[in-house]
Each structure stands twice: as structure tokens, then as C-alpha cells.
Design a protein around this nucleic acid. Structure first.
Lengths: 166, 166
DNA sequence: GAAGATTGATCTGTCAATCTTG
DNA sequence: CAAGATTGACAGATCAATCTTC
């Protein structure tokens, strides 16, 4: 039996598929990061402000924030340190569990988020969702959801306790 | 006219779509990184070894490597420093342009790559390509390619010059 | 003077250890 | 003694500056 050209695992279709995933994702992220930088925000800082703004009382526990952003708790401590230094968030004690702390978005933080968000949405539309037909986008999101559910079975988290009101 | 509940830009469908992209990608990357770590490799080190192994003479210019991995040239200098220290690559002068240097994969480097690659392919199959039907995968890749081409119009690079033969 | 590569200073993130509270 | 949060020491990446070659 003639073997012909030996298999080249480095050129496997799976490598190509993942490479495409990487290039699309990192390229898109770079476009978004550029805008964040223009507003003096790191991507993770934007993400934290966004998650806080969507949460009841604008507050989340440090641990929840860390889990939702796939960051270590010590890393999140430092992100909140920076955001607090710029008065975009404040720390609030947790009444029901004295070990815990909330990060809570301030009016300053909401204002900065409002500055960034419209352009951010435009960029997602321009470089991501707007590149595809409605049907293509629906199919893409369905596939991404399958993958997400497989690799992140615990992709839910929520606030609890009693942050201050303002 | 009744406006009803005011628009909440933080909950825009575009945000949800991008969030799904982030979760799927970072979750998958984490699975792959776990295996790299088990083989004492950083993800970017694996990527460099893979790209070198696929290139003529197993060599690429520092600048090309940096561009292909979306890394700064100084960052790539340091990656190659580490890989050279472990004798997975060597530096080779470029004959046609004396400012340039090639990183060239060694037999040690190819051996380490061969250790990692089978498990790596299995993981991509398990957590990514194997999660989807052939039709779904084709559609996903077509959409990713559209996005990649939009955000990275310059996604090609190649070797040039005259690396040593090893 | 511009480009390829490296180096020094600095920034951001993690891990291990620590402190406090459950 | 386990869990939430922080801190010190350190690894990894970038930017600006530098050196060599085009």
C-alpha cells in the first residue's frame, strides 16, 4: 500500500478552525479596545462598569465580578482599586456577610459608561453583527451558545446581600 | 405617544451577542491552556512552535511571528528568549537583510510539539468542532471568516530571506 | 531617516500567603 | 477550618528609547 504524503497534524482542519476563531475574536476585540482606550478605559474596566450598571443598585460582590469576568479575585481587587481611584465605583460593606464587599458604580461611572456605550454598540454592529445576515447571525449565536454551554457549564452568577443605596 | 420603558443600552442585543462570543472563546481557550500548562508551555509558546513547524525550514522572521500572533515585537523577543533558553528554537541571522533574525524550531522543539499536538487536536474536537454538526460548523466557519476578513484585512504573512538549514 | 530587533521602565495579572469573618 | 478580600512577590506584555542596518 502506498502511503503517499504523510499526515501533517500541524495542518489539521481543527487547527484551521480554531485559528479562524482566534483571528476573528482577537481582531474584533482589538477594534473595541481601541475605542475603550480613546476613553481612557481598559476593556476589563468597561466590562465591570457595564455589569455593575445592569445590576440591582448598581452593585456586585467582588467574588461575583471576578467570576463573571474570568478573573482572579486578586486581579479584581486591583481593577476596583483603579476604578475607585478615578471615582467610577465605590466599595460598600455587605450587611449580611461581613467578609464581603460590594463594588458599586457611581454617577461618575455611569456618566463615563454613557460616553462609551453608543460608540461601542456602533462598533459591534460595524465589525460583528452587521457583517452577517440575520439568518447567519442567528446560526452563529446558536453555535456559540452550544460551545459556551459546553466549556462554561456554570455561566450564571448574581448579586445577593444588601448594598447601600447610593 | 407612550414611550413605555425607556431604552436600556446596556441590555442591547449587540452586547449579548458579543458577550456570547467572549464566553465561548475564553472558555474554549481556557480548556486548551490547561493542556498547554500540563506540558509546561504557554499558549503563545505553543502557537510559535506550531507556526515555525509549518514554515519552510522551520523558520520565521521575528517581525512576521509578532504580526501573526498579534504581539508586539518586544513581546516576541521575550517569547523567543524563553523558547531559546529551553532549546526549543534557535536564532539564525538573515542573509539578505542583516537587520533581521529568524527564529528556527529545533528538533527539541518539534519533539515537544509532537507531544502536545495530539491532545490539543482532541481538545479542539471535544470542545469546539465536535460540538456542532458538519453543517453548523461550516456555517460557523464561514461567518467567522467574514468577520476575520473585515477586522484583519492583512491576515497574511510569510517568510523571506535565507535561514540556515538547521 | 526608516525598519528590524532588543532593552529598560512600567503596567497589569496571577499565585501564595495573610487577615477577618462565617 | 472554609470562604471573601486583600497584599507581596513575581511572571508576562507593552511602550519608549536605543542600536544596527537598509
Amino acid at each position: 500500500v502506498t502511503k503517499g504524503i504523510p499526515a501533517a497534524p500541524e495542518d489539521d482542519a481543527r487547527i484551521t478552525a480554531f485559528g479562524l476563531f482566534v483571528e476573528a475574536f482577537t481582531g474584533l476585540s482589538a477594534k473595541l479596545a481601541e475605542q475603550f482606550a480613546a476613553h481612557r478605559l481598559a476593556p476589563v474596566e468597561f466590562e465591570v462598569l457595564l455589569r455593575l450598571a445592569r445590576s440591582p443598585r448598581g452593585a456586585l460582590r467582588m467574588t461575583d465580578l471576578a467570576a463573571q469576568t474570568s478573573m482572579s479575585t486578586s486581579g479584581m481587587t486591583r481593577v476596583i482599586d483603579r476604578l475607585e481611584r478615578e471615582s467610577f465605583v465605590r466599595r460598600t460593606a455587605c450587611e449580611s456577610d461581613r467578609r464581603g464587599w460590594f463594588a458599586q458604580i457611581t454617577e461618575n461611572g455611569r456618566a463615563r459608561l454613557a460616553d462609551v456605550l453608543p460608540g461601542h454598540l456602533d462598533l459591534i454592529d460595524k465589525w460583528f453583527t452587521g457583517q452577517l445576515s440575520k439568518h447567519e447571525l442567528d446560526a452563529l449565536l446558536a453555535s456559540l451558545r452550544k460551545i459556551r454551554d459546553a466549556v462554561r457549564p456554570d455561566a450564571t452568577a448574581g448579586a445577593s446581600g444588601e448594598p447601600g443605596t447610593g
